[in-house]
């Protein structure tokens, strides 16, 4: 049995091999470079708040993709970390008067802690059960967000001050805030890229492809699963905490389960298990929500249709298809 499995999993790891030791391949370097130049110019082309929203969701989707695409675990409760962190960061900035970077750190740390607890419980189940368990825990976080005194219930935490970065650089202006958000999200995405292409990332892929084999090779699978869960929750939290600084608000929308569904949709649409897929998916969905907002409930319907088509006909996602054409991992 073990031999057969090894044979089946072999080519997959071989595919990834070139990307591993010698740092980033040229193609990825080029894409990240072009992306950065584009993002530097973006706030002068579109409404900066919209651009910041796209970046926050891109980081969120990338963090989610770490868990689903590379860890093979479908969490249906990632809103808990995204929204939970946004509450903590908003509270830190508004009530404790922390500077933006410390507020974001506080939110991120809270998400990591939440991820540790929920992750430790959830990885006891697999597959569909895992999805449902994470969903139920996220719902618990939702009710806590509704009822804990510091979250402001239905009102949320409003009028969060934008503060001065490191206590020195004022971020009240949309453009200066934009570059702060760009640094955070771009840095976060690069960090996730590093994780995926580290030895840890390789083990994750091995577990995803064939868990029994990884166990027989002597890996403590549960520890790896927990670690990837916590990492994913942490970066989802980083995205949520940053978003709360942009919109100066933390609200129930970000902890609601429909947000968990949205990030699944972004990843699925862009291409799960690819590097750039979540970014494309997030940009596509946020843009659609923004420009089709006038259609009201039709936005939900269109999202549902994308889901159905994605699952039935288009499981590789946009970047997955491009990657197949180019015959290179993206």
């Amino acid at each position: 049995m073990a031999m057969n499995d090894a044979g089946a999993a072999g080519p997959k790891t071989a595919d990834d091999a070139p990307a591993r030791p010698a740092g980033m391949p040229m193609l990825h370097k080029a894409i990240f470079g072009i992306l950065l130049i584009f993002l530097l110019a973006l706030p002068f082309l579109v409404y900066p708040i919209f651009a910041m929203k796209v970046m926050c969701f891109a980081l969120f989707a990338a963090a989610f993709n770490l868990l689903l695409g590379f860890g093979g675990l479908l969490s249906f409760g990632h809103a808990a970390y995204f929204g939970g962190a946004s509450y903590v960061a908003a509270h830190a900035a508004k009530v404790w008067g922390l500077t933006p970077e410390l507020s974001v750190l506080a939110g991120t740390a809270a998400a990591a802690f939440l991820g540790l607890i929920i992750g430790a419980l959830s990885i006891r189940r697999q597959g569909i059960y895992f999805a449902m368990v994470t969903l139920a825990f996220a719902q618990m976080v939702y009710f806590l967000s509704l009822q804990l005194p510091f979250t402001g219930g239905e009102d949320g935490i409003q009028s969060v001050p934008r503060g001065d970065l490191f206590g020195l650089i004022p971020l009240q202006d949309n453009i200066s805030l934009y570059f702060f958000v760009l640094a955070v999200t771009f840095g976060g995405i690069l960090f996730l890229y590093r994780i995926v292409h580290s030895p840890f990332g390789q083990v994750l892929k091995a577990i995803r492809e064939n868990e029994p084999r990884a166990v027989s090779l002597g890996y403590n699978v549960n520890r790896y699963k927990l670690l990837v869960f916590v990492l994913s929750a942490t970066f989802a939290g980083l995205a949520g905490a940053t978003k709360s600084q942009v919109f100066q608000l933390a609200s129930l929308t970000d902890v609601h389960w429909s947000m968990s569904g949205e990030v699944v949709l972004m990843t699925l649409l862009g291409g799960m298990g690819t590097i750039f897929g979540p970014l494309v998916g997030a940009a596509a969905i946020v843009t659609m929500q923004n420009y089709l907002a006038t259609l009201g409930a039709w936005v939900t319907i269109i999202q549902g249709v994308i889901f159905v088509i994605g699952v039935l006909l288009f499981r590789e996602g946009i970047v997955g298809v491009i990657s197949r054409w180019l015959k290179r991992p993206l």
Partner: peptide, 11 residues
Amino acid sequence: LLLTFGLALII
């Protein structure tokens, strides 16, 4: 699960 989630959104 994902497909039925999409269907739920549509309905």
